[in-house]
C-alpha cells in the first residue's frame, strides 16, 4: 500500500509540476490543482497508513497509536483542502480576467509568433 500511495503521489506531483511549467493558463491551473492533490495525499500519509482504525477513542482500549490512527493529519488535510480549493477558485477568476483583457490564454498575454 505504501508503494502504491507513493507512486500515486509521485505521478500526481510530477504531472502537476510539468503542467505548471506549460505556457497556457489552463494548464497552469490544472497543474496547481494536481499538485495540491499530491500535497493533500502526502499530508494524509504522514499519519502512518493503516486500515480499519478510526481516530475515535473506544472505551476499554488504551488511547495510543496501536489502536487508533492519528486524527491530526486528517484535520490538517481538511483545512488544506478547503484553503486550496478557495485559492484555486480565486486563481481561476484571475485567469478568466486575463483571458478577457488580453484575448489569449498565454501566461504572459502574448501569443508566440511561429
Amino acid at each position: 500500500m505504501e508503494v502504491l500511495l507513493a507512486l500515486v503521489i509521485g505521478v500526481l506531483a510530477g504531472s502537476g509540476i510539468w503542467l505548471v511549467l506549460r505556457p497556457r493558463t489552463f494548464q497552469v491551473v490544472l497543474g496547481l490543482a494536481l499538485l495540491s492533490y499530491a500535497v493533500n495525499l502526502f499530508i494524509f500519509s504522514m499519519g502512518s497508513l493503516v486500515i480499519d482504525k478510526p481516530p475515535l477513542v473506544v472505551p476499554g482500549l488504551p488511547a495510543n497509536l496501536e489502536h487508533y490512527t492519528d486524527p491530526m493529519p486528517q484535520s490538517l488535510v481538511l483545512t488544506a483542502i478547503v484553503i486550496g480549493f478557495a485559492t484555486t477558485a480565486l486563481f481561476l477568476v484571475v485567469l478568466l480576467a486575463a483571458r478577457g483583457l488580453s484575448g489569449t490564454d498565454h501566461v504572459d498575454g502574448e501569443q508566440d509568433t511561429p
Binding site: 505548471v20 493558463t25 496547481l32 499538485l35 495540491s36 480565486l90 484571475v94
Partner: peptide
C-alpha cells in the same frame, strides 16, 4: 496572475 501562481506553489 504570476504572483498568485508563485504563491500557490509556495503554499504547496
Amino acid at each position: 496572475m504570476h504572483y498568485i501562481a508563485v504563491n500557490l506553489l509556495a503554499s504547496s
